[in-house]
Computed example of a mutant assay.
Amino acid sequence: MVEYALKPIGYVEVGLPRPNEPDRGRYATRYDFIGVVRVYDEYVDGLLGLEEYSHVMLIYIFHEQREVRLRVRLKGTDKEVGIFATRYPLRPNPIGLSVLELVKVEPPRLWLRGLDAWTGTPILDIKPYDYYDVVKKPRVPREFEEEWVRSYIEKGYGEKVPWLGPCP
């Protein structure tokens, strides 16, 4: 088996407040939050042209996650599934991926709406989101679809993040 060593290209300078932090209550959803990623100076040239995109994919490390589980219970249900059927952080390789709205680029910083990583989170890569990344009608489990519809209505996703969700 081959092992890989990855070097962060930056870090989350202003991250989503943790559940126990006082500022957390200011945000009804993560999409109400605009966070800041700082790219290390040696990688700043790699940001050239990124401002032409509306969204990016941010790849990062769940750097404080120590526990690994291969099976988990879906939030709000009794259904047990494998970790690879979720986006939960309890993974063998604690890598996170988020699609985020690119609000502003001022090298070495990016302002990202919906950033769901904590301050200090190491960033592995940034990729532009483009037409190759769109799946118009993905198949998802019934429980996920029900949760999405609830969130869409209760959390106002239709207005806050109109780019998310199934395409007609």
Rank of each mutant, 00 (worst) to 15 (best):
L112T: 12
G96V: 02
K136H: 07
V105Q: 07
L110A: 04
L115H: 12
G114T: 05
D133Y: 00
I123E: 10
G114R: 03
D130A: 13
L124T: 09
P107V: 08
R91F: 01
V134L: 09
L102H: 05
K127Q: 12
G96Q: 05
D125G: 10
W118F: 15
D116A: 08
E106A: 14
L90E: 02
A117E: 10
T119H: 12
E101I: 01
P128M: 08
R109H: 10
I126L: 15
V103P: 06
R109P: 01
I123C: 10
I123D: 11
K136F: 04
P94Q: 03
Y131A: 14
V105L: 14
G96E: 04
R91S: 02
R109G: 00
L102W: 05
T121N: 11
W111R: 14
R113C: 10
D116I: 12
W111E: 15
G120S: 11
T119D: 10
L110W: 03
K137E: 13
P128N: 05
W118C: 06
I126W: 09
Y129I: 15
L97N: 02
P108E: 08
T119I: 11
E101L: 01
R109Y: 12
G120I: 12
R91C: 05
K136N: 08
Y132Q: 07
L124F: 08
K137D: 13
P92D: 06
L110S: 03
V99H: 02
P122W: 07
Y88A: 13
G114I: 08
G114S: 07
D125V: 07
Y132E: 13
L110P: 04
K104I: 01
P122L: 09
P107I: 08
G114Y: 04
L90D: 11
P138I: 02
Y129T: 04
P107W: 06
L100N: 09
L97V: 15
P128R: 09
W111F: 15
T119A: 11
Y129H: 13
L100G: 10
N93I: 02
P138R: 01
S98I: 00
E101Y: 02
D130M: 02
L124P: 10
I123P: 07
D116E: 14
P89E: 03
Y131G: 14
K136P: 00
N93V: 02
P138Y: 00
L115G: 10
G120E: 13
G96N: 03
V99A: 04
R91V: 03
D133F: 06
V105M: 14
W118M: 09
V134H: 00
W118S: 14
Y129F: 15
E106I: 14
T121D: 12
L112W: 12
K127M: 04
V134I: 15
N93R: 02
V135D: 01
V134T: 00
I95K: 01
R91H: 01
L110R: 06
D125Q: 06
